[in-house]
């Protein structure tokens, strides 16, 4: 986006930053552009964004990027240290670790993406309804939330997977089921402050019903803090997914899931450190990138910052 901005005449920037937009489209684009400028000013967040874009590219083009098949075994070449042939070395079956990491990014993105879709949406729905309706609805929904919160996340996810059977789909489901309660809490707290605002009262006086108030007036204000929270929680979700993989309850071998890869390398960690360290490093970098991105998004989306 920064290149397009440079190549166009300066008036484009002025048009976007105008305080008196002439059309709906200009107003919306202007708001987006303002947000982008704020985000861009945060160097670390940009760094995180670039890493994530690279990760996406890696996942999309995995078959072309990976030097070898992630599954082809070569027992003669097992546990080779990083070299020109195998940049990140090979594992105990002689599979190329780099190729496995590249293909593994697809699995990681799938897990993270699905959980990030399910958990906040469920949380938003439950939290805003509880906060807006109040009374016994609030009581019931929040006690359910408390029950979920009372268990340690990983243990609960373990229980779910154990009950449903070990597979990557069930791992995602289990993670989503354990991840929603904090979002519900957050959405409810936001709703409680918003629901007594004058603009909600004004909308009520226009004859707006509860569904419209919830969807058109309350959700747009809750969504931004949820997005920030999701980006910050991504790291945790990746780690939980890796944790499940490590315990053998997520992706099943020979799938190149990063957590499962660490688990495989565990036995050799003292003599052949790269087998566990390389996927560990990948998890670390991606988690960090999501955290940085979340920080940047907070600058852009936080209603307190937007006042300025």
């Amino acid at each position: 986006m920064s290149e397009t901005e440079l190549s166009r005449p300066i008036s484009r920037r002025e048009w976007l930053l105008s305080d008196a937009p002439q059309s709906r489209r200009q107003a919306q684009l202007g708001a987006l552009y303002q947000g982008w400028l704020t985000f861009r000013a945060n160097k670390l967040a940009m760094f995180g964004l670039i890493i994530l874009i690279l990760l996406f590219g890696m996942a999309i083009f995995a078959p072309w990027l990976a030097p070898q098949s992630p599954f082809s075994q070569n027992l003669a070449d097992r546990l080779q240290p990083p070299s020109a042939e195998h940049w990140l070395g090979t594992d105990s079956f002689g599979r190329d670790i780099l190729s496995r990491l590249i293909h593994g990014s697809r699995i990681t993105l799938f897990i993270v993406g699905t959980v990030a879709l399910i958990a906040p949406v469920a949380g938003l729905l439950i939290g805003t309804v509880a906060g807006f309706a109040g009374g016994w609805v609030d009581q019931v929904l929040m006690r359910i939330t408390d029950i979920f919160l009372a268990f340690p996340k990983l243990i609960l996810a373990l229980a779910f997977v154990a009950a449903l059977g070990a597979s990557i789909g069930n791992a995602v489901l289990a993670l989503a089921l354990t991840a929603w309660p904090p979002y519900a809490r957050l959405a409810r707290a936001e709703t409680l402050t918003i629901r007594n605002a004058d603009y909600i009262a004004a909308a009520r006086l226009q004859g707006a019903g509860p569904t419209r108030l919830l969807i058109r007036h309350i959700w747009p204000l809750c969504v931004s803090s949820l997005i920030v929270r999701v980006a910050l929680d991504m790291a945790g979700i990746i780690l939980s997914a890796a944790g499940l993989g490590f315990l053998g309850l997520g992706a099943q071998p020979p799938m190149p899931e990063w957590g499962a890869m660490i688990s495989d390398g565990r036995i050799y960690i003292l003599d052949y450190w790269w087998v566990a360290a390389m996927p560990g490093l990948a998890i670390f970098i991606v988690s960090l990138a999501f955290n940085l991105l979340g920080d940047g998004l907070r600058d852009v989306l936080d209603p307190k910052g937007a006042k300025e």
Partner: peptide
């Protein structure tokens, strides 16, 4: 306080 911050 009486205008929704995200509504034009």
């Amino acid at each position: 306080a009486s205008l929704h911050p995200r509504h034009s």
